[in-house]
Structure formats: C-alpha cells, structure tokens
Design a binder for these strands. Structure first.
Lengths: 339, 339
DNA sequence: GAAACGAATGAAATCGTTTTCATACTTATA
DNA sequence: TATAAGTATGAAAACGATTTCATTCGTTTC
C-alpha cells in the first residue's frame, strides 16, 4: 500500500507537490508533474479514500432509502439512481427499510456519522419531525415519496393525476362499482392517488363505499387475497384500481383461476408499467411513471445541495404520469352493453 | 459537529478516555463512563466514520457487483446480501457493471482506494487475470458466477445439475427437439448449464443441433426474438430450455400471440423461479435457486476473509438447485401421444 | 515495609490526505 | 534598477478518531 509519502520520497519532492499533481492543481512544472506520474505508476499508488474523506469532509457516497429492492418499481429507481450518481462520481449505498421506522432511523445515522454526503428518501417510514433533525448533518432529498411538512427539495410524480386518469378510464368504460387498492396507509403517494381516484368518481357522480377499499396491498399475494375478499362482498365490484402492477397481476391470476374473465367480469388497472404488464393474459392497463427522469433529477438536486450546503429549501419538481391502456380494461361487459 | 475533543473538553477528560468509553474498552471508572456518556448525549456527538476508517483501516462497506439490478434474480440477490451485510454492521455499495468490462475494472478501484473492505462478484466481465491483481488490496469473493482459475472463495449453485434436471424433465415428457437459450457467452453459469443440458441429452441419446442454440437471450424482448427465430427453422423445436424466467415469459408471450399453445405446441422451462412464473398463463416450469442462502454464505465468508486477511484461498461452497414443475411443460402433445 | 501488580488516566504518535503559509526564484512593469 | 507580480516548491497544520506508552495511585504479597 504505497502512500503519498512514498511517492514524495521516490521523486525527491514533497507531499504537497504530489498532492498538487493528483488534484490537477496549478503551479507544478511539467517536469515534476511527469516525474510524479511516473512514480505513482511505478508504485501502483492510488489515493486512500478514507484519508481524503476525512480531510475533505466528503465521502462521495449517497444513501438511497427504499422499502425493499425486489419491488420492480424500486429496482428501476435504484438502477437509474446508481447510474446518475456514478456520472457525478458518487457511489450509492442501498438502505432497505423494509417498512420499519426503526430501521429507517438507524440508517439515518449514516448521515450523522458522515458516512454519506446525502440521503435520498424514496420512501418515508417516520414522521417528518423525527427525520428533520438529521438535516443539520447533511442534505435530504425526497424522491417519489413526499411530505407537505418537509422543508426539503422534493422530486415527485403527480400521483393525484395518476389516480385520476386511471379511474376516469374505468369510469369511461361504464364502471360504477370500482374497488380501490393501495399499499400503505402512511404513504402520501398512496393518499394522493386516492384523492385522484375519488376526484374522478365525484366527477362522474359515482359514490364510493369504504368496503371497496383495500389499503394494505403490496405484493402479488396481497392481490390474490384482495380478490378473495372482493368475492365475499354482497355487491361485487366490476373494476378495480390498484397501486401496483404486482397487485394487479395477483388479482388477475386469482380471478382467472376462479373462472373469472378479465376484463369482462372484472376490469383491472395497475400502476408502474412494469414488464409484467405485457406478459400476463390479458395484458394489464397501467400508469407509466417516468422513473429515470425522477431519479436523475433527484441526483442532480442532491449534488447541488451538497455543494451549496443549503439543505432547508422547499423546492418541488413534479413529473407527469401517463395512462397505458391494455387488455385488462378494454371491452368489458359493461362497455359492450352500452355499445 | 461535535468531535471527540469537544466531549473530552466538556468532561475535563482526555480523548483517550472518551475513546475508551465509545469502544467499550476496559479500565474506565464507572463514574467517568457516565460522565462521558452524558456529555456525548448532550453534544449529540457521534464518531466520524471517515476518521475511524482512516485510523482503523476499515470502512465497514462491501461492494456487490451485478450486471443490472432490474433483473429480478439480481434484485433478490441484492436484497439478501444487504440484509446479511447489515447483520454484520456492513453497508452495501451497488456496482452495476451493465456487462461492461471497463465499468467492472473501474468499480474495482473501490477496493484499491480502500473505499470498501471487500468485493463480492456476482457477475464477472473480465478475465480473472485482470481481476486478480486487486487481491493485494482486499478480499474478493465470487458469488453465483465463478471461474476455475480464480483462487478465491466461491459461493455458487450447481448449475450443471440445474441444466440437467430441467432438460431431463423435458426429455421425460418425450421431447427430442429441444432448443437451448442462455444469457452470455462469457458466463460460466451459462456454460455449466449447457454442460448439464447436453449431459441430459446424451443420456437420452438425443443429439443436439447448433441451430437450436441461442446464447444471447437476457430479457423479455430477447425471448420474443428467439421465438421468432425458432419459427424460421425448417424443423422447429417442440421444447425450449431457457436461462431465465424473463426469457421464458418472453417466448411464451410471443408464442401465444402467434397462436401457439403452451405446452402442447411448445414446452418451455425457465430458470430462477421468479414471481412471474406463477402469473403467466400457463405458469412456468422453472429451476429454483436458493439465493438467500447463497448471499448469506457469501457475506459470512467475506467477513471472515476481512478478519483473517487471507484472501487467496480456493474454497468452494455449493448449494443445490431444485426443479419446480408447472404448467408450461406438463401435458404436452408428445406426452399425451405416448400416454 | 518494600516490591510487585493492577486499575485508571493522559500525552502524543499515528492513519494518509489537503491546504495554508512561507519562501525562493523568475519575469514583467514603472 | 527597484518593485511588483507571478510561478514553483516545501514545512507543518489540519481533518477526527485510536492506540501505544508512560505515569500515577491504590492494593496485594512476601
């Protein structure tokens, strides 16, 4: 493990000059520069990251908080974030909170101990007042998830609109008994979608019954469970809005198994536009989220905050969502009746 | 940002004593210990990671190399690795090589610059001789992917057996015209599966034609493409072995679109036992890989290597694979004829 | 009662960088 | 020609922890 001192000795120069060469600082003669570069090459010298971090008060590492990476939406977010971070020379540490407030707070210490230069929260498990104190140690940027009380940059998608267009699409197909599925009571993403969902219903003068709401659906298995619950209802819904394609796929899978025809007996709309939406039979109508753009923007913003050291600024960057119509909602019984 | 010096001053003690308290070292009186803990609390003091890393020559960070995280197999591997690492107090940096040897070598510098304590390679893009020199800087553990020339601990699955059981299953169904699909020429995982594939064919005295081989199939789209290619053949295969459930799903999706019945017209076997295998119609026969166990073992091993500092030891830990039979191979035309 | 030992503490060195400040030399400017 | 301005370099101080070594004090032990 050669150090800068070794390079200095080999060249007969000082550490200062070697450091200048490493960091491309001015005021080094071409002659000495070459000498240093040769010595570095010869010794296989590479600057030690920890020493640099300590001296520069900067680790070039970002932390990305997600509930779990096996959710394809978050996989895609991680992929895009890692690529964007790498462009700026940042490494990415993955923090899976697994929906646990304790785990989230624990990971937050990465900021406090200066192991990372900043935190991107793509999910939030604690009240903002619990997270806010960490702002004194470094920037926090919200990405995907958000909180109105949070006085930090937020990069998000227009989830109200997302819930609205998906639901409106079902209403346009003639449905009035529409169930609502989402993941998590805490999530403002889910809450916003529900606002959009209800807004669409209101516009069509369709009332909503709380028995049609399932707010604890995350996985495929939850989708299957939800379908069974819906079947137990005296008045079964003819369409269902879901907060993820996984849940939608679970519902469809279970429905088909029970002899239901999709969309004739039950129209299903998913969310995320995951690969799976084109592989199921029928294919799944869904809402596309511009994950790459969102991730890129979040990294752009946090890098800027790290540089300017202004962490408490409420800036909101919002990207639009897009409805992708596929087979799971088209040509439903109700629609055909009307035609 | 309080430092250890601040705590020392507030308590009237030395940095040494404070450090002893932080690290639970002996020879600190209960009285002083309390004093220090109170001061730490009062100042909101937390040890600085960079300073610790520098002094201890240890970052408590591991790097995990994968081609891309959106492949569900790797998502699962990342999830399990992150959890296992966290148990040991390690953070996980994600390195997506995107199948690029240059990117891989570049990420390897994390080891050289001491930004991480060890590297887990779940995919390999360079020849081993290019990677080997990095061993002088820290441990490398192979996990999933492997290389016979590599003199480092390897945690892997019995891929030859995996290829064998999947193919044997197809042969037992009466198939003789079996196509072979895999991802990557470089990968020894793929090569091993092919060995198992051919071993099964040989046992059943079935010959293999190179025109049935498609060795560049990674994604869903590749599966669709492969199906089209197969259709162009004068003698079409009646079954196909694939290296991933994504590819299998792609083939099935395209086949169904073209009016093919699965498995009657084409039996398909996937690999990985991803969630998708139970969502497609028909469900997909596949090979289950014990990813969690593998990840846990890889972390166990690398943590041990970091401690013992013995990096060049050829140890092989192998876990078994398991065939999961579902609808995409059962009751094929050939099988029914025989019955 | 002296020697030996263990417990409690601190001063200073160390980890490997970067940066500040000082110094020396060269060249341009008045 | 004296002065200012720029160029090139190095010594030493930081960054914030841990550890080595020395010192002091109290308690055994013979």
């Amino acid at each position: 493990m050669a150090t800068i001192e070794d390079v200095a000795k080999l060249t007969g120069l000082s550490r200062t000059t070697v450091s200048r060469v490493i960091n491309n600082h001015p005021y080094v003669s071409e002659e000495k520069r070459k000498l240093v570069l040769e010595a570095m090459e010869k010794l296989g010298y590479v600057p030690n990251s920890s020493a640099r971090s300590l001296r520069n008060q900067k680790t070039s590492i970002l932390a990305l908080f997600i509930p779990r990476i096996t959710n394809p939406f978050f996989s895609e977010l991680v992929e895009a974030t890692e690529i964007a971070a790498a462009e700026y020379g940042y490494q990415l540490i993955i923090c899976q909170t697994r929906y646990s407030p304790e785990k989230e707070l624990n990971y937050m210490n990465l900021l406090k101990t200066k192991q990372v230069d900043g935190v991107i929260l793509a999910s939030i498990q604690n009240e903002w007042k619990k997270l806010k104190p960490f702002l004194q140690y470094g920037p926090i940027v919200l990405c995907n998830e958000f909180d109105d009380r949070a006085n930090v940059p937020t990069v998000r998608l227009d989830q109200v609109y997302g819930g609205y267009i998906a639901t409106k699409h079902l209403l346009e197909q003639g449905h009035t008994k529409i169930a609502y599925c989402s993941g998590g009571y805490r999530s403002n993403v889910a809450k916003s979608r529900e606002i959009g969902f209800k807004k669409a219903l209101a516009e069509y003068k369709v009332s909503f019954h709380e028995q049609y709401a399932f707010r604890d659906a995350f996985h495929i298995a939850d989708g299957k469970r939800v379908f069974q619950k819906m079947m137990e209802l005296s008045e079964r819904p003819t369409a269902v809005f879901t907060g993820s394609d996984e849940v939608a796929a679970g519902i469809i899978s279970e429905a088909v198994k029970c002899g239901y025809r999709i969309p004739e007996d039950l129209a299903v709309v998913g969310f995320d536009n995951q690969a799976i939406t084109e592989l199921t039979n029928p294919t799944i109508t869904t809402v596309h989220q511009p994950v790459k753009q969102m991730a890129q923007k979040a990294v752009d913003v946090i890098v800027e905050k790290i540089q300017t050291k202004k962490y408490e600024t409420k800036e909101i960057y919002e990207f639009p969502l897009q409805l992708i119509v596929r087979a799971s909602t088209l040509g439903s019984k109700l629609h055909q009746r009307e035609a």
